[in-house]
Amino acid sequence: MVTPRPFALCVYCSASTTDPAHLDLATRVGVEIGRRGWQLVSGGGHVSMMGAVATAARAGGANTVGVIPKHLVHREVADVDSDELVVTDTMRQRKQVMEDRADAFLTLPGGIGTLEEFFETWTGGQLGQHTKPMAILDLDGHYTGLFTWLAELRDRGFVPQEALDRVTVTTDLAEAFAALGRE
C-alpha cells in the first residue's frame, strides 16, 4: 500500500540575513511545519533563514525536500541533511521543481531572489497555471512598502484586485498557516 505524501509547503526566504529575529521567524515556521506533519520544499541551502526553517522542520519530524542549482551548492551550502536534495542545472529549473512539488507557498522576509520566486509563483497563479494558495508572513513590515506600491498600481489600473486577493499578507503565524489550507 502506497502512503500518500504529506501536504507540501514551499517556503521562500532569505539565504543571506543573519538577523536573529528573522532566523527566529524561520525556526518558528519550521517548527509549525513539523507540528502539522507537512513536508517542506525549500531552496536547498543550509544557510540563513533557509537553513533555519529546514533544520527546525526536520527536528519536528517533517520530511524536507531541498532544491538547489549546481552553481549555488557551495555558496548556499547545500542542505545535505534534506530527506531529498534535488540539484538542478539552472535557477529556472529550481523554481519549476519547487512549484511542481508544492501544494502551497509561504514567503518570509528576503531579498531580490525571494521576491523573484514570489512574483513568478504569484504571476503563474494569476495566469491560471496553478490554484495553489499563497501567503506572506510579514512580522516586521518587511513587505509594507511593496504592498503599498501594489495598491497604487491597482488604483492606477495595472494590477487587478483579484490578483491582490490571491495572496494573504499577515503578521500572524497562525493566520498565515490557516490561509495555506489543510486546517
Rank of each mutant, 00 (worst) to 15 (best):
V73C: 14
D79P: 05
L85G: 11
Q126M: 14
G110F: 05
A104M: 07
A8F: 01
E183N: 15
H142K: 06
E116K: 07
G44H: 08
G110C: 06
M98P: 00
G34L: 08
F147P: 12
F7W: 11
A56K: 06
A26E: 01
L146T: 09
K132M: 10
S16W: 12
E32N: 02
D165C: 02
T90F: 15
T64E: 03
D140S: 10
H22P: 09
D100W: 06
D140T: 11
D172I: 02
L115H: 09
V87D: 15
S14D: 06
V80H: 09
Q39S: 12
R58S: 13
L25W: 01
A26M: 10
G45W: 00
T131E: 15
M50K: 03
V73E: 14
V159D: 06
T131M: 13
V169T: 04
L72A: 04
K95R: 09
E175L: 02
E175M: 02
G45T: 00
A151D: 15
A56S: 12
F147I: 04
R92T: 12
R101Q: 13
I136P: 00
W149Q: 13
G181K: 03
R94Q: 15
F105H: 00
L115T: 07
P133N: 07
T148I: 15
V77K: 08
G60T: 09
G43Y: 03
P20I: 03
L164Y: 10
P109I: 05
T114S: 13
L150V: 15
T55R: 15
R28W: 02
A163C: 13
Q39V: 05
V67D: 00
R36F: 04
L137D: 01
F7C: 09
E99R: 05
A102W: 00
A62C: 10
P4Q: 07
A8K: 00
I33H: 00
A135S: 10
A176I: 00
A26W: 03
